[in-house]
Design a protein around this nucleic acid. Sequence first.
DNA 1: TAGATTGTTAATCGATTAACAATC
DNA 2: TAGATTGTTAATCGATTAACAATC
Lengths: 221, 221
Amino acid sequence: MPKRENISMSVIRRLPRYYRFLNQLKRDGVTRISSTELSGKLGLTASQIRQDLNCFGGFGQQGYGYIVEQLAAEIGHILGVEHNYRTVLFGAGNLGRAIAAHMNFEQLGFELIGIFDDAPQKIGTVIRGMEVLNTACFENFCKEKKPEMAVLCIPRTAVEATVDRLYPLGIHNYWNFSHYDINMKYPNAVVENVHLNDSLLTLCYCISNAPEAQKPQKVQI
Amino acid sequence: MPKRENISMSVIRRLPRYYRFLNQLKRDGVTRISSTELSGKLGLTASQIRQDLNCFGGFGQQGYGYIVEQLAAEIGHILGVEHNYRTVLFGAGNLGRAIAAHMNFEQLGFELIGIFDDAPQKIGTVIRGMEVLNTACFENFCKEKKPEMAVLCIPRTAVEATVDRLYPLGIHNYWNFSHYDINMKYPNAVVENVHLNDSLLTLCYCISNAPEAQKPQKVQI
DNA sequence: TAGATTGTTAATCGATTAACAATC
DNA sequence: TAGATTGTTAATCGATTAACAATC
């Protein structure tokens, strides 16, 4: 794959979805698929799928289509799922515990190597067989384990101080569940935000402004 | 606000962010703001902000700007935060418990009125002062409480059957944490997806493809 | 070979930005 | 009134779709 420059975010955000569907097809025993078939399953145009894939290289065969297993592997490689970036999680509250327990980090390019909190009642508790460590010990942990990414499940108010501490330790990549905007202060940090509040408000808008036919008040049980 | 038709998703997805920033300004005691000032804080162009707001009406005063409190209220109203849609949550696993405990549903247009699971060891446990109920009892619950939205924190494999059950009961709105695509079978359902796996994979791509200067291997502790 | 389907270029569509007249 | 800033129209930019030649 020689091209790959200035790929737009629109394209990038579709890749995980392609990857997911292709892996499902693989599990279902499908060996070969055309862009038209795939477009039906994904609800996109065949043209868009071909355009997207050709940002990274020509993975298909003219007149034949794409080999499912090969294409899945290519996209996995493009995403970088083989990297297993060493990851720490900050905040062992409800959300942090859920994320630690729920996510298959290993299949998604990361390896969870430590969970940190500063509340005494949380330190020492176990999540997914991993003991929650005291945030105070992070510098020592860091020297030995050299984490590359941090998941932030801490309150908005605590994020700035935490990033001020992690960034100089070489942790420049963040999966951020707070609404604090890390890139304001650290424009070079690589940040993926999960804004659950915004997502819920978007749903609220869509419900409130759905065509009349779908309005809840019209519904009968 | 007379206009409001065919608002693009791009605009809608920016509204929660405007709402969030305006509420913060309100808390900070700011009474007045211009589109230019706001654009600086949000990292958007002033033009875009004015365009976005004018999809819904003219909320500013020429030569003066926008009154923070008033604009926040207007956007809240556009989003529909006052609706308090009656909400049930399915799946009291790690993620479901975290979402139930973590989200301020009341401030975001929803009211959580029930949590359901079918695992005996979960039924009867308490989350946020609310007892987890047996999924088997849902029809009865529904007759009395008439829920309008469902949060789905159940495994992908269980979603289809659950929606098959909920949709005919009049629940057409979903906050979906699984990767099952509800709109395939129910095109009229109003669905907001939270795809945590896709988000993490996107981060993986961004880390793997960041400019050399940011690559983790170059970092010194 | 004929049929199918890609890779890629060109056309269209939509979203963002710029400009400026209206007006507070 | 003069200065500022909106609301809105026009220009630009980017993303999606359509078309088709290349080729398996």
